[in-house]
Amino acid sequence: MISLYYDLHMHSCLSPCGSEDMTPYNIAGMAALKGLDVIAVTDHNTCRNCPAVLAAAEEYGVLAVPGMELTTSEEVHAVCLFAALEQALSFDSYVYERILNIKNREDIFGRQEMYGLDDKPAGIEEKLLISATSISFEGLWELVRSYGGVMFPAHIDKNANSLIANLGFIADDSLFTAAELHDIKKLHGIREKNPYLDSCRILVNSDAHYLEDIREPEFTIPVRERTAAGVVEALLTRP
């Protein structure tokens, strides 16, 4: 097994709330500087900056897993990661059709900027990406699996947009194999109330919207191979 320092949840400038400095190359550069082995840029309901992220990460010698942070119809945030870029992009097309049709207002929500493989701006996304989709949390695991990916509920310790805050508790018949906490100190209390988490790999990611908030190399994930598929496989394996 190889141990990889990870940060598997952060936002690029394509998320309206993501800093404009969070360009794919800046993110990859910062991850390399910090000494992270693997990152995932997970914009709200979109994977459209993933091609640039993967290209930039490769140049900097960092592994990048393509993914998105999906907002379910219950407004639960779930991180979806994929073994290959094509899987992520076809999931992206499925999701895009199911985002509430609201035009972004940059003055309120912020700019949604796409980047090309050449590190240059490649267009503005007009549809508001941060709103909810019509995809329910119920069935999301199977849906993401059908695209070859893995899903884990995001920041379950937060009081908004989290599985526990929005849906009350973690059902015993859940299927997900990993869960993300923002603050690891809260794990004990949350696990006591939600014993399902005993069977999950617990991840601590930054959910960074600014370059400086990307995680330091602190938490590791054991993988069999240093690839996006290897990371997805590791996340599918219960501890």
Partner: peptide, 24 residues
Amino acid sequence: LLSIAMGKAPEGCAWITVMANMNT
């Protein structure tokens, strides 16, 4: 649910919610 409030909250309303979030 912010997605509902987004389309339905009337102009000039007092909006009562438990969703204490930046997006609110």
